[in-house]
């Protein structure tokens, strides 16, 4: 067995890596905003908003991500709405991670003691102010470990977009490999790049956790 590695693969892989990072950043951001709103709807509202948010979370957590991606890309195209692969990828995965992030946010918000909100209200804050200035800063600290996991998952799950023709890290790797049949070597390099990325992100988030740590909150003790 002889292993072969060519430096000329790297520029293309680099472009793929960039797309992976951009895609992940876009999805995770959309997911964070939407997820937060879903969590708020599930905690603080009753009636239609609550049911809508709950149904949303159930649907996206109860069906495979790949099926969701195909529904957005091919399904909508079948109905006459043609999206670029990039847009389809961002939408499908953003909507998907929103459902998971909503559950993490919900858990964290509910872990903030009720007395905290009462104290905020008793000072004359509105409900939104209480959420914004008292509940959220605590919930964000509590959610960070789970949220970090979600970010790491998304970095890897974005690899499925090669199935709708997007040249992300995995997609580029597949193209190179099928050109020169060095499947093992190319995928090994791809795997190492993912690994480095994940380690980097994990370390950065650990650092952030340490920076915003407060005695008496979550892992802080």
């Amino acid at each position: 067995m002889n292993l072969l590695f060519k430096w000329e693969w790297l520029p293309d892989l680099g472009k793929g890596l960039t797309l992976t990072v951009e895609l992940t950043a876009a999805c995770i951001s959309i997911g964070a905003v939407l997820g937060f709103l879903l969590a708020v709807a599930r905690i603080y509202t009753r009636g239609p908003l609550y049911w809508l948010a709950s149904a949303y979370v159930q649907f996206f957590r109860g069906t495979p991500l790949l099926v969701q991606l195909f529904m957005v890309h091919f399904g909508l195209a079948g109905l006459g709405l043609r999206l670029t692969p990039l847009l389809s990828g961002i939408i499908a995965m953003g909507l998907n991670t929103a459902a998971y992030q909503a559950e993490y946010f919900r858990g964290a918000i509910q872990a903030v003691k009720r007395g905290q909100t009462l104290a905020a209200l008793s000072l004359g804050m509105t409900r939104w102010q209480a959420i914004l200035y008292v509940v959220l800063p605590q919930a964000l600290r509590l959610v960070l470990p789970a949220w970090s996991n979600e970010l790491v998952y998304m970095l890897k799950y974005t690899s499925i977009v090669y199935l709708i023709g997007l040249p992300d890290l995995t997609g580029v790797g597949r193209t190179i490999a099928s050109r020169n049949f060095r499947f093992f070597e190319v995928y090994a390099v791809v795997a190492l790049i993912y690994l480095a990325l994940v380690l980097l992100v994990t370390m950065a988030l650990r650092g952030l956790e340490r920076r915003i740590r407060v005695p008496g909150l979550g892992t802080a003790r």
Binding site: K113, Q116, A120, S122, G124, M125, Y133, Q138, V214, L217
Partner: peptide, 29 residues
């Protein structure tokens, strides 16, 4: 909200804002 800001409330279990220092707890309102 205005009325509440004119009525102090001291709770049995304090309910200080966990994420803020003593000073910021007092300053937040």
């Amino acid at each position: 909200y205005r009325i509440r800001s004119q009525i102090g409330f001291v709770f049995q279990d304090f309910n200080l804002f966990t994420h803020l220092t003593a000073l910021d707890n007092v300053a937040l309102g």
